[in-house]
C-alpha cells in the first residue's frame, strides 16, 4: 500500500516516531512523501494564508493523485502546547479541494487527531492511524509495492547536531518553524546560501524541546504563557543562543503572514535590544517570491555585520 505523507510534515516533532510506529504495525506500507507530478492548483485556498500552508495543501493534492491513500494527521498539540490553527483545518481544506478538483473522494484521506506528549500517545495514535489505513484500503491491499518514492531524508534526532563539545562560536544559528528550516522551497535556500559562503549553520531543531521550553518558561505569566509550541521553540532557541551557547549570529526565519511569529518577533526583538552582548540577530521573512538576489544580499550584509561584531 502506498501511503502519502507530505514531506513538509516530516520535520514536525513526533512525526518520524509516528511514521515508524505505523510502519511497525503495517510493514507493507510504502511511504510516498513527494509526488512525481505537478500539484493541482487548489480552488479553495485563501490567498493570504501563509506560504507553508499553501505548499502543504499543494503537496497533499499531488500525493492524493499518486498514492493509495493520504495520511494527514490533524496536528492539534505537541508536548502539551498548541500548533497553529492552520494545522487544525489542513485536512478539511485538502478534502474540500480534492472533492472539487475531482481527485479521489475525501475518504481517501486518513486523518487522526494528533495530540502527543510522549511515546505512549504515539503508540495509541499509530494504532488508530493504522486502523484507518486498513479500513481505507482493505486487508487485501496491504501488500508491499516496490515502486514507491520512499523518503530517505529522516530529520536528525534531537541534540544530534548540537553535541556539547561542538564549537558553535563561528556558526550561524537558524531559528524558526521546523518545516521552514528543513524545506528549501520554504526557506529561500538560506541554509544552502550559508553553506556556500563557508558558514556552518546550526538549527534550533537540533536542540531538545524540553531544554527550549524550560528557557521560554521564564517569560510565562499565569494565563499569559506562550501556548503555541513553535513560539516556545523559537523563543527558547533565541534564549539558548544568547545565554547558554553563543553562535556568531542568529537568523530568524519567518513565513510571511505567520500569525504566531508576528507576535514572537516583537518579543524577541525587544529582548535582543536589551542584551548588551548578544550576537547579531536578523529576521528574514520567507515568501513565495522567486527573486533570489535580495536574499543573497541580505545574507552577505548580515555576514559582514557578524564579522565586524566578532572583531569588537
Amino acid at each position: 500500500m502506498r501511503v502519502g505523507l507530505p514531506s513538509e510534515l516530516l520535520s514536525v516533532a513526533w512525526m518520524p516516531e509516528l511514521k515508524e510506529a505505523i510502519s511497525r504495525i503495517m510493514p507493507g506500507i510504502v511511504w510516498v512523501h513527494a509526488a512525481q507530478g505537478k500539484a493541482p492548483r487548489p480552488l479553495f485556498l485563501e490567498g493570504d494564508v501563509c506560504y507553508p500552508l499553501k505548499t502543504m495543501v499543494g503537496s497533499c493534492l499531488a500525493l492524493l493523485a499518486e498514492a493509495d491513500t493520504l495520511l494527514l494527521p490533524r496536528i492539534v498539540g505537541l508536548d502539551g502546547f498548541l500548533m497553529c490553527p492552520n494545522f487544525r483545518g489542513l485536512p478539511d481544506i485538502v478534502a474540500l479541494n480534492a472533492r472539487t478538483i475531482g481527485l479521489p473522494a475525501a475518504t481517501a484521506i486518513v486523518s487522526v487527531v494528533m495530540e502527543v506528549a510522549d511515546d505512549r500517545h504515539i503508540k495509541i495514535l499509530a494504532e488508530t492511524a493504522a486502523q484507518g489505513l486498513r479500513e481505507q484500503c482493505g486487508p487485501g491491499n496491504t501488500t508491499v509495492c516496490s515502486d514507491g518514492n520512499t523518503c530517505t531524508a529522516t530529520p536528525p534526532a534531537a541534540d544530534a547536531g548540537m553535541a556539547r563539545d561542538r564549537d558553535i562560536s563561528r556558526s550561524i544559528a537558524l531559528i524558526g518553524h521546523p518545516y521552514l528550516l528543513a524545506d528549501g522551497r520554504l526557506n529561500n535556500g538560506i541554509p544552502d546560501l550559508l553553506r556556500a559562503s563557508g558558514v556552518d549553520g546550526i538549527l534550533c531543531t537540533d536542540l531538545p524541546f524540553a531544554v527550549l521550553d524550560l528557557l521560554a518558561r521564564e517569560y510565562d505569566y499565569y494565563a499569559k504563557k506562550l501556548y503555541f509550541r513553535s513560539a516556545r521553540e523559537a523563543l527558547g532557541a533565541f534564549l539558548y543562543f544568547t545565554r547558554v551557547r553563543q553562535p556568531a549570529g542568529i537568523i530568524h526565519l519567518v513565513p510571511f503572514n505567520c500569525g504566531v511569529d508576528a507576535l514572537l518577533r516583537i518579543e524577541i526583538e525587544s529582548l535582543h535590544k536589551k542584551m548588551p552582548h548578544a550576537p547579531p540577530y536578523m529576521v528574514i521573512v520567507c515568501d513565495e517570491h522567486t527573486q533570489h538576489d535580495h536574499v543573497v544580499t541580505r545574507i552577505e550584509a548580515f555576514l559582514d555585520i557578524v564579522n565586524e561584531h566578532r572583531k569588537i
Partner: peptide, 19 residues
C-alpha cells in the same frame, strides 16, 4: 483582518460554501 489564521481557514471553506 489580514493574517488572521482562523479566519483565513474560514475564508477558504466559505468559498466552497458559496459554490
Amino acid at each position: 483582518p489580514f493574517s488572521c489564521m482562523p479566519e483565513s481557514n474560514a475564508a477558504s471553506v466559505l468559498a466552497a460554501v458559496g459554490t
